[in-house]
């Protein structure tokens, strides 16, 4: 077992591959959420009869927290202190971020959201599994497809049929065991 040294466990900041632009943008987004919180918070109506501090104070406090912490993070990143990316058994910290896979996975989840109603849950879920497995590099395609179909049917049966969760059955409409 070789443990990489530059990602020493527990170290607060460590070198991550790639330029810090993304990290900087993320910190700036935190600041801007705080700013939006202030602007939109000013629009919150306060009933005149309110006997306590009203509905605005806490949103303002949270927005202030985000602005201050976000600004601190921007400074930290600019000074070269980077966040240590999350570790995990299946994570290869040496690998560069594979944006294409992230895009594909997100795309299939989005597609799934649009297909649930017209095609029914089992078909939409099978497509999601099939697409995600393919994006993550599983081959051959027919095994992925078989697994996807079986998984979707089993889930529809267990949750739609047995536990009574109202998943739209799609083409399985009328088969009682899959929930109607």
């Amino acid at each position: 077992m070789s443990t990489s040294v530059q990602n020493a466990p527990g170290s607060g900041t460590a070198a991550a591959p790639g330029a810090p632009v993304g990290e900087l943008v993320f910190a700036l987004i935190i600041v801007s959420i705080g700013v939006v919180g202030f602007v939109a918070g000013a629009g919150i109506q306060t009933p005149p009869s309110a006997s306590d501090i009203g509905p605005r104070a806490f949103p303002f406090a949270v927005s202030a927290l985000l602005v201050v912490v976000g600004a601190g993070l921007v400074l930290q990143v600019l000074r070269g202190h980077r966040g240590a990316a999350d570790e995990g058994e299946d994570v290869d910290l040496e690998a560069k971020t594979d944006w294409l896979t992230v895009g594909k996975l997100s795309g299939f989840v989005l597609l799934h959201a649009f297909l649930i109603v017209p095609l029914g849950w089992p078909v939409a879920a099978a497509l999601l599994f099939f697409g995600a497995a393919w994006s993550l590099g599983a081959r051959p395609w027919w095994r992925n497809l078989m697994t996807a179909i079986i998984l979707a049917l089993v889930l529809q049966f267990v949750f739609g049929g047995l536990l009574g969760v109202s998943l739209p059955p799609g083409f399985l409409e009328g088969f009682g065991v899959f929930g109607g």
């Binding site: 299946d90 971020t97 993550l136």
Partner: peptide, 12 residues
């Protein structure tokens, strides 16, 4: 979040 993150750096 976990699936996307692991997907971005999957240990092959």
């Amino acid at each position: 979040g976990e699936a996307l993150y692991v997907g971005s750096r999957l240990r092959h």
